[in-house]
Design a protein around this nucleic acid. Structure first.
Lengths: 308, 308
DNA sequence: CTTAGACTTGAATCAAACTCATAAAATTAA
DNA sequence: TTAATTTTATGAGTTTGATTCAAGTCTAAG
């Protein structure tokens, strides 16, 4: 079995040119190296270097092992460095994915604030939505997923961020504009504008329309919140959005925001995190910053405390 | 220090899902694994996996180590396989470079014959001549160099292949055509055609012209032996070539081949090989095949026995 | 031929890794 | 829930193998 030790010996031997000096650098006796290399050569049944020559030369086999060492040793050292910093809580990785499309609005400032505190944490925000984020979180490809549908998974904790109400945005000229709240059947004749994601992720379907068995007359999609509201203002359809997203982007003169159902649809947004990462200081800090930013910059959100 | 052993343990732990099964696969006791992992975790000051769960889960740190393992372990195994085959002499690498331009003629059939015997030896023939082959041989980038200028280098052996005479090819109409041999001053008024390489590699310069301090009237180059002979036959110049190359390519009716100097210039071609490779069976076999092919297919060559 | 420097070798030492026996914890079945 | 079973942890003792020590061999230079 070739061990890391052997590779290390060979590289320092190459760097130093003699067993004696290599032994000094490795804080071993020269005898130890002699034994070690003789042993390896016997086990491989192969000579690794030519001793009787200055500077000493490596055989083909020795050169092959040096190639292995050059490829492999830096990787060992790199992960050791990373693990050391991990253990000291100085660093880590924070790859984030969001299921909630509007969340860019508060997540970006949160990430910016966080980066100031923790410059050594590697940040990433996955904007592609064509993969299931929660399995990726379990696997370790992601470290934090912002979701409103916590599903019990081993090793995953859901930290509540805040609760908000989903409202229906309609044009101020729209016949429904003066209603006190919206019922499912009101939407049967409407064009619904939504983000281009699966309908299972849209609360208006899962919580209002699907239970009532009602389908809107048409569905069209838009990528950006402002674009959706433009369409709504010009009477081209209606759309369901978080109250805070509406408060930020809509012009009160042209858009009315109405509760969905008698009691309104209230949703809680969670940060899904792997349990072992939850205790890391940078993770706690990120969650704190995120909540702070949400409550200070989003209007209409409520604290939510139920941990899942 | 993370050792190969640790990485192996972690991957089999991932594959088997429990310490007990992993221990069986590794031919160790479960206790050994428990100790080993506890040890590693303590040294890293980091938890690597969550025990109280089935199937067991790896923490971020554990996943980082698994990533290292996945990258590094296959490389260990690969070089171990290669070294095993190296030690059994079954395989190896034979990257060849030639300094002698005409040598393609016999080297190609030699390589073909060799490949039949040793299909697992990786062959390569470097045809680019823009690097110094002997240092590359020492470094291990090459394994065999065909050269006529053996220079003493540590760890390099020169195996004589054969001796040949360098002859001057002239047109049968040429004024020198009926001479018994050529003298340096005969060439002062001639156009010399040569391969496009440095003049230090051309015997006609190093052995005849430069010692006599004579320069040909003009020098022009050609890549291919047949092309050179075409030029000679049409009276556009003269060229020096190995007797065997001339015998193969020249038409006796139009070309005369004359010795250079009173005794002729005899050159020995060597295979330069790293000493440790010389003992390998495939290398000995290649050298044998090469000599056989040369003596059976080249006319005018002589054995040479002096080892350098 | 002698001598200094570099490597090898065998025996002794020591530490690390492993086993054994057993306890603790967790999971499953009743 | 308890009992039974499986899985993991732990401490003591053992084994392995890596290292040191001391003495010897080899090589190159004087």
């Amino acid at each position: 079995m070739i061990e890391r030790r052997h590779l290390h010996t060979l590289t320092t031997l190459r760097d130093s040119g003699s067993l004696i000096e290599a032994a000094q650098r490795l804080h071993l006796t020269q005898s130890a190296l002699s034994h070690q290399l003789k042993d390896l050569e016997q086990r491989l049944n192969l000579q690794l270097f030519v001793r009787k020559s200055r500077p000493l030369r490596f055989t083909t086999a020795g050169q092959r092992l040096l190639a292995l060492a050059d490829s492999v040793l830096p990787q060992f050292r790199q992960t050791e460095r990373e693990l050391l910093r991990l253990s000291q809580g100085e660093t880590g990785r924070l790859h984030i994915a969001i299921e909630c499309h509007s969340c860019f609005q508060w997540l970006m400032p949160a990430i910016d604030a966080f980066r100031d505190h923790w410059p050594d944490v590697e940040m990433d925000l996955a904007s592609g939505f064509n993969f299931a984020p929660l399995p990726a979180l379990t696997r370790g490809d992601l470290d934090l997923v912002v979701t409103s549908n916590p599903q019990s998974l081993p090793g995953i904790s859901y930290i509540p961020l805040f609760s908000y109400e989903v409202l229906l945005a309609v044009s101020h000229r729209h016949p429904l504009a003066e209603s006190t709240f919206i019922q499912a059947q009101d939407l049967a004749a409407e064009t619904l504008i939504s983000y281009p994601v699966e309908r299972e992720r849209l609360d208006i379907f899962t919580q209002l329309l699907d239970p009532a068995g009602i389908e809107p007359a048409a569905i069209r999609t838009a990528e950006l919140t402002v674009m959706m509201l433009q369409l709504v203002a010009s009477g081209r359809g209606v759309c369901a959005l978080p109250n805070w997203a509406l408060a930020e982007h809509s012009d009160k003169r042209f858009i009315r925001a109405l509760p969905l159902g008698e009691k309104g649809i209230w949703t809680t947004l969670y940060a899904a995190v792997r349990e072992d990462q939850l205790e890391m200081s940078f993770m706690r800090d990120f969650l704190g910053i995120a909540k702070d930013i949400c409550f200070s910059s989003l209007t209409g959100v409520r604290p939510a405390s139920k941990t899942v």
